[in-house]
Simulated assay, not measured.
Amino acid sequence: MSNPVYVAIDVPRLDAAKVLAEKVKGHVGGVKLGLEFFCAHGHHGVMELAHVGLPIFLDLKLHDIPNTVAGAMQAIHVLEPAIVTVHASGGRAMMEDAKAAAGENTKIVAVTMLTSLDENDLSRTGVAGSAHDQVMRLAELAEAAGLDGIVCSGQEVGSVHKQWKNGFFVVPGLRPAGSNVGDQKRVVTPRQARDDGASVLVIGRPISKAEDPLAAARAIEATL
């Protein structure tokens, strides 16, 4: 992948999403569409963004019983996404069925721990141990289930890469040096994540909310 940056376009207006994607497409490697976009625009919206000519990452974080997740995966075949997310906490059977139902050219990656969470949040949900330990446990489960890779923060990707040499690692919650971290709790710079083994760098607000999104995308690309 020549440019690992996927710009996160989670906006409610389709016209604004298309304008942003067209504006930055020369300096990113793909487009990430999440729940807000998909719930607002569905299949039609994804197809409209596909006209921009960039790979589409559907960040749907599917998490349900295995049969339901497999059915959802089959329902998006027509969209030909490059990447789709499921939750690793859905268990091995769910991840196995998700992978089996996915399109031939679609990578399935498991979300391990949201970058908006920290160890205090884990404890409140009944999960003992550190964020690092939780990510490593779920990465091992995802690999055993036959998935292509995982989603984790930049703070864990180096360790996961050492454990899973040929895995495909998506790192969100990235912030260029000196920028506002917002609601993210476990952040690193795009360059650090890439150096530690990230395959895809998901960057949203530092590009989408910038005064000049094109300049912001170009500046991030230059650091890589």
Rank of each mutant, 00 (worst) to 15 (best):
R92G: 04
S208Q: 06
S208F: 00
N166V: 10
R191N: 10
H87T: 03
G129R: 00
R92P: 03
V31H: 09
I220S: 05
R175K: 15
K209W: 11
Q134F: 12
H51I: 05
I56L: 15
Q184H: 10
T112L: 12
G29I: 09
A215S: 15
Q155P: 04
R205K: 12
K107I: 02
D97M: 15
V31S: 15
V11H: 01
A50G: 08
E119N: 02
D15W: 05
S123Y: 09
Q192F: 14
N166D: 15
P176Q: 14
V187Q: 03
L58F: 07
D196L: 11
L14H: 02
L224K: 02
E143D: 12
G91A: 06
G26Y: 12
A75L: 02
K185N: 06
A93Y: 00
I76V: 13
T189I: 05
V28D: 11
F38K: 05
M73D: 06
E221Y: 12
S208G: 13
A177W: 11
A222Y: 08
D121C: 01
F169Y: 10
L147Q: 04
D121F: 01
S159P: 04
A93L: 14
E119A: 13
F38A: 10
V187S: 14
S130C: 04
N3D: 15
L122P: 01
A110H: 00
G204M: 04
G34E: 07
A88G: 06
A102H: 04
P81L: 04
D121Q: 06
K61M: 08
S153E: 09
M95N: 05
L60F: 02
M113A: 14
L62N: 05
V69T: 06
R13N: 14
H43P: 00
L20V: 11
A128Y: 10
H51N: 14
V181F: 06
D195R: 13
H132M: 14
F168K: 01
D118C: 00
A198W: 14
G103L: 00
K107Q: 15
T68S: 07
G34Y: 09
A88P: 07
H132R: 14
G158E: 12
V31P: 06
A131Y: 07
D133P: 03
H87Y: 10
F57H: 04
R124S: 15
F168M: 12
E36S: 03
D196K: 03
N120R: 11
V46W: 06
A198K: 12
I150S: 13
M136N: 12
